[in-house]
């Protein structure tokens, strides 16, 4: 069983893939895929997308100290460049999105600890 990390629309999933032996003739049964969703933190210190749009830039790196009010990312939607500011002080634990990603309203962008 091999484990792959797959990123879909900004969310990371862990997928286990089991190889199926070759069978001559007949119809092969599909490989059994066990999908485990990696739940990105929904803690109170997550920085969420306030609107749906595209990530224009990410202004921080993992390990950076962030102050309340600091701009951490910019999301573009309908010609509006929207600065996302942190609502609290913290340290960047995980950056969930990359430049160019499409995000939906309330998607987690950055996880702080």
């Amino acid at each position: 069983m091999k484990v792959y990390k797959v990123k879909v629309n900004g969310k990371v999933y862990e997928v286990e893939v089991e190889a199926v032996d070759e069978v001559k003739g007949g119809i092969e049964a599909p490989a059994q895929v066990k999908k485990e969703e990696v739940v990105v933190s929904q803690g109170s210190n997550d920085i969420l997308a306030p609107i749906a749009g595209k990530v224009l830039s990410v202004k921080v790196n993992v390990g950076d100290t962030v102050k309340k009010g600091q701009t951490v990312a910019i999301i573009e939607a309908m010609k509006l460049e929207n600065e996302i500011q942190s609502a609290f002080d913290g340290k960047v634990k995980q950056i969930v999105v990359s430049v160019g990603d499409d995000v939906r309203n309330k998607d987690v962008l950055i996880v702080l600890e």
Partner: peptide, 28 residues
């Protein structure tokens, strides 16, 4: 589109729309 004003084929006005958000949009 999205937000230039032209006179024939020349630009006379440019507009930049920016926003600031924390948990939700705070201002435009």
């Amino acid at each position: 589109w999205p937000n230039d004003v032209y006179v024939k084929d020349k630009k006379i006005c440019g507009i930049l729309l920016e926003g600031v958000s924390k948990d939700e949009m705070e201002c435009l």
